[in-house]
């Protein structure tokens, strides 16, 4: 592991140099929240943020991904849209990198999704520790408060400097090209440990059980009255899934130009919380109620994704808790309550 340090002023100059030569995306303040967006000047970058509205996964699995273009003149001619613009993302928080690892398992598992893969290969990741967690986050108790492997560079705000961990060759190259950083020693690394340790006590929400036990409490909780109690309030708006960094479901649609000569097939984010998500052509809906859909979503997060892809489908970011207007979407509430119900029988 290689560690470097750089003053914040120097870092800003480095970001400026990156912007000159690359597509750089970073966290911008967008009142009342923050959002990942293309940076045009280094001073737009805001690294002491609490949460972004959407996760940076939107760069790898965009809300709308063109799959192919075609001509309608009778013959199929599919122009490839499998491609990606190289770029650099600055400011990913640990929980979002955990979520990206889940997307890797989904889209680069048995089947390689070329659209995702293309983006993943050419977009570099510079993350940063989340030392002042958002009030809705429960990442600490989900084991996602610190970054997994898989970043190119990782920053820790140590006051007037950033400590930088180099995570890959691509990261090394970025340092060589853009960062005027000097070597860091054991003192800084120890300081990072301390800062990280201290951040854990700042989380307001936490899961009462080990995350490994979530599938177990779900196994016993299928018939809990909680599902109905929460689910009947759901108005199927899908907000809880649109903001979720681990939600991967999509619809596939076609559009045609007005001249009906050519068109495009694309995939677009979909939500298992929408009422017709599981409706077939005959009209049969296999998840007809808000209760069915809320339960499915939380089983998917807490059990199915783990079984299928080896990672929990919730990284504890808290976005869904905040997004739900009727206050029923919270995984930490549901899992804690089921754990309590399991204990008390």
């Amino acid at each position: 592991m290689e560690f470097l340090k750089i003053s914040k002023a120097q870092f800003q100059l480095s970001v400026g140099r990156m912007i000159d030569e690359n597509f750089v995306y970073g966290v911008k303040a967008k009142s009342p929240s923050y959002e990942f967006d293309r940076l045009f000047t280094a001073d737009e970058l805001c690294l002491n943020y609490n949460i972004t509205l959407l996760s940076p996964n939107k760069y790898f699995l965009p809300p709308r991904t063109p799959l192919m273009g075609f001509k309608l003149d009778g013959k199929i001619s599919v122009d490839s849209m499998v491609g990606a613009q190289p770029g650099i993302i600055i400011g990913i928080h640990p929980y979002d990198l955990h979520a990206l690892k889940l997307l890797d398992a989904v889209f680069l598992g048995n089947l390689k999704d070329a659209y995702y893969q293309a983006r993943r290969q050419v977009i570099a990741i510079i993350g940063i520790d989340c030392l002042q967690p958002w009030q809705y986050s429960f990442a600490a108790s989900m084991g996602t408060a610190f970054p997994p492997a898989g970043f190119d560079l990782w920053l820790t705000d140590t006051g007037d400097k950033y400590l930088i961990e180099v995570g890959s060759e691509k990261g090394e190259e970025l340092c060589r090209k853009y960062l005027d950083a000097s070597e860091a020693g054991e003192i800084e690394v120890k300081q990072r440990e301390k800062l990280r340790e201290e951040s854990l006590s700042r989380y307001k929400l936490s899961l009462d059980i080990s995350p490994q036990l979530i599938p177990e409490v779900l196994n016993s909780g299928w018939n809990s009255s909680m599902w109905e109690e929460l689910g009947e309030k759901c108005f199927s708006c899908g907000s809880c899934t649109m903001v979720c960094p681990t939600c991967v479901c999509f619809d596939v649609r076609d559009t045609t130009e007005l001249n009906r000569l050519s068109g495009e097939r694309y995939r677009i984010w979909d939500s298992c919380m929408f009422d017709a998500f599981a409706t077939i052509a005959s009209g049969e809906n296999f998840r007809p109620t808000g209760t069915d859909r809320l339960r499915h979503r939380l089983y998917r997060k807490g059990k199915y994704m783990l079984q299928r892809w080896g990672r929990l489908g919730c990284v504890g970011c808290g976005r869904c808790i905040h997004a739900c207007l009727v206050d029923i979407a919270s995984p930490v509430y549901a899992y804690n309550r089921l754990a309590r119900e399991a204990r008390t029988g």
């Binding site: 999509f250 619809d251 979909d270 298992c272 296999f286 499915h296 089983y299 059990k303 199915y304």
Partner: peptide, 19 residues
């Protein structure tokens, strides 16, 4: 069985029954 399907390749999530 018939379920709603959008991809056929285990990605879109529409056809899921439990896991």
């Amino acid at each position: 069985l018939e379920r709603r399907m959008k991809c056929g390749i285990g990605l879109c999530g529409h056809c899921q029954i439990d896991n």
